[in-house]
């Protein structure tokens, strides 16, 4: 068990090392002088020179790479060129809407998808099953920003049921801010429910044909007990995996959804950073988000241990 965890940590470290290398390469892919690009057309050559000096861009590429790795390893993600503050601070300041948007939409997705997936699997081939599978496929095909715009128009602007956009202004209290996340969460939740529905249906189908389910029925156990106690419990493992994997999907969705609803989250931050060529922010966001993904999938694996006594590492 401990050896397994140690091995996993080594694996995670290797993956993070590659993540850092990829990020380093991406930022240096930009053709031309990054310092001049970051400063824009009005900058003087002296400004560019000073920035190059500050960012260490005039040192050999391997020296840059080594100092980049060292800097990240010490927990320093550099400073934003636009905000003139450490990237970690900037990210922390923008994390709240993204974190809660992702969390709420994940909850909404599970609440929609899990029961439908279970009933679908249980009534395989029925009209209900066909309808839910088709609807899920449709939901996965609609661009989330388009759904977002339509929902915004018809459930907020025209009816006033939800706040139209924004995060409640600078004085908004926590409750007010969360109120602004309801509609975006519904949009993102619907999009993400498609994948969870398909997985929970497939997992349940798999389990329902297992011997122990037949045995449970043969023992005369009540049907709902068979389904909920025996089948669902065993179908949970693949379902938990997909919930872990949904994280990447949630962040991608959040980037676009934040833009629709004008939420000051990580997504808006990155899009703004791209338009302003604020490379340290792009770089820092990629590293933090990829790191979280690696960590969450590790935690999901650990969760298996708790759910399934057969899994031993």
């Amino acid at each position: 068990m401990l050896t397994y965890i140690a091995k996993r940590f080594v694996g995670m470290a290797v993956v993070m090392f590659i993540v850092l290398t990829v990020v380093f390469v991406i930022v240096r892919l930009a053709p031309g002088d990054p310092a001049a690009l970051m400063l824009g057309p009005e900058a003087t050559p002296e400004d560019a020179m000073a920035l190059r000096e500050r960012l260490g861009l005039n040192r050999p590429i391997f020296v840059q790479y080594a100092s980049f790795l060292g800097q990240i390893a010490s927990g320093d993600l550099g400073s934003s060129l636009f905000f003139n503050r450490p990237v970690l601070d900037v990210l922390a300041g923008r994390a709240e809407p993204t974190v809660f948007l992702s969390l709420f939409s994940l909850i909404i997705a599970i609440v929609i998808a899990l029961p439908i997936g279970l009933v679908s699997a249980y009534t395989r081939g029925s009209l209900f099953d066909q309808a839910s599978v088709s609807t899920a496929m449709l939901a996965a095909s609609v661009p989330s920003f388009w759904t977002g715009l339509l929902f915004q128009q018809y459930l907020a602007t025209k009816t006033g049921w939800f706040p139209v956009a924004g995060y409640g202004g600078p004085d908004a209290d926590f409750f007010d801010r969360m109120r602004h996340l309801i509609l975006p969460s519904i949009v993102l939740g619907i999009v993400n429910s498609a994948l969870i529905l398909r997985f929970s249906r497939a997992a349940m189908l798999d389990v329902l044909s297992d011997d122990f389910v037949r045995t449970a029925r043969a023992k005369g156990m009540s049907e709902w007990r068979v389904v909920l106690r025996h089948a669902l419990k065993n179908a949970l493992i693949p379902i938990v995996t997909v919930v872990g994997l949904t994280f990447a999907l949630l962040i991608s969705g959040a980037v676009v959804t934040e833009r629709v609803f004008n939420l000051p989250g990580i997504g808006s931050l990155v899009v703004g950073a791209v338009l302003r060529r604020d490379y340290p922010v792009i770089q820092g966001t990629l590293i933090v988000v990829a790191g979280l993904y690696v960590l969450i999938n590790f935690l999901v694996d650990m969760l298996y241990l708790a759910i399934d006594p057969r899994v031993k590492y």
Binding site: I26, A248, S252, V256, I282
Partner: peptide, 24 residues
């Protein structure tokens, strides 16, 4: 395999935005 794992750790839109930002 590790490279595949690392690349899959980036959310697709986020990685695509960053690459387009770098490439033009």
């Amino acid at each position: 395999s590790r490279v595949i794992d690392a690349m899959m750790a980036f959310p697709d839109i986020l990685l695509a935005i960053s690459l387009v930002a770098a490439l033009g």
